[in-house]
């Protein structure tokens, strides 16, 4: 008998302790924005400015958009222009705005078996990799990074179908580790690459960087209230306005990880 009472008391205590539900905006976004720590600076500033709490769900771009399509998020920050356009065209998203960009990097083993010219054009690099049938590791998870990678192959006019071309099916970090161990080339976002390099976990080197083809643009898109009546459109709109305001853009411009600038806002502060 006493045991049963104890259990009930315990349960109510556990469940009721703090108020678990809060009023918040749900932001579905990519792991790259979350893992760099940018959101942990940006979101508190917005909360201070507006009194609105934002909860971000760090997932890949494809999944972030899928969540938003199901009306489970109010706003997304993603980086896959092709997917974004379809998302808006299909009526799921509204008010799509460019927010910031950075660059993808093409990285490969220090031995460089495909003889890729360092700091050359990325298209040239991919052609050499294909010619040498060198190992290449793709994310294979429909992330913004993979979408970009596929677009690059298309730009180079190559169909990546040799046996050395493989899909990891994992996030950026594990993909980099795998590429390192397989002696493979891969495409990475700069932040994750730098993090892994600085901890000595990988020895991959940058082969192509900072060129227009490698530009990685991030957009903010609001979920269409016509499709999702319960979405917090007004609050989400405030959030978007804040991100694009001088204050928001300055935070993005000033954000540094390990002393290096990671993002370039669309409206750079003067």
């Amino acid at each position: 008998m006493r045991l049963r009472v104890l259990l009930i008391v315990l349960l109510t205590f556990l469940l009721a302790a703090p108020a678990m539900a809060v009023d918040r905006l749900v932001l579905a976004t990519t792991t790259s924005t979350a893992n760099t720590g940018l959101l942990d600076v940006l979101l508190p500033a917005f909360t201070k400015h507006s009194g609105i709490t934002v909860h971000y769900i760090p997932v890949g771009t494809g999944k972030a958009l899928a969540i938003a399509k199901r009306c489970d998020a109010d706003v997304v920050i993603v980086h896959a222009p092709a997917l974004e356009e379809r998302f808006v065209a299909d009526g799921y998203g509204v008010d799509r705005q460019a927010l910031m960009h950075n660059y993808f990097v093409l990285v490969g083993p220090p031995g460089n078996p495909a003889k890729v010219q360092q700091a050359g054009s990325v298209v040239d690099a991919l052609k050499r990799i294909a010619q040498a049938k060198a190992p290449f590791l793709s994310r294979g998870d429909n992330s913004g990074t993979q979408v970009k990678e596929l677009a690059l192959w298309k730009a180079a006019g190559i169909k990546p179908d040799w046996p050395g071309y493989r899909e990891a099916g994992r996030g950026m970090g594990p993909t980099l580790t795998m590429a390192d161990e397989l002696g493979a080339y891969t495409l990475s976002d700069i932040a994750t690459y730098r993090k892994y390099l600085s901890t000595g976990r990988i020895s991959l080197v940058i082969l192509a960087d900072n060129q227009d083809l490698l530009k990685n643009p991030y957009s903010v898109i609001l979920v269409n209230p016509a499709k999702c009546p319960k979405v917090k459109y007004d609050q989400a709109k405030k959030f978007e306005k804040f991100l694009l305001s001088p204050q928001g853009q300055e935070i993005i411009a000033d954000y540094k990880a390990d002393g290096k600038k990671l993002f370039w806002p669309v409206h750079p502060p003067k």
Partner: peptide
């Protein structure tokens, strides 16, 4: 999972 994906093993 997050720390691992960030490389913070």
């Amino acid at each position: 999972a997050l720390e691992t994906s960030k490389g913070e093993f």
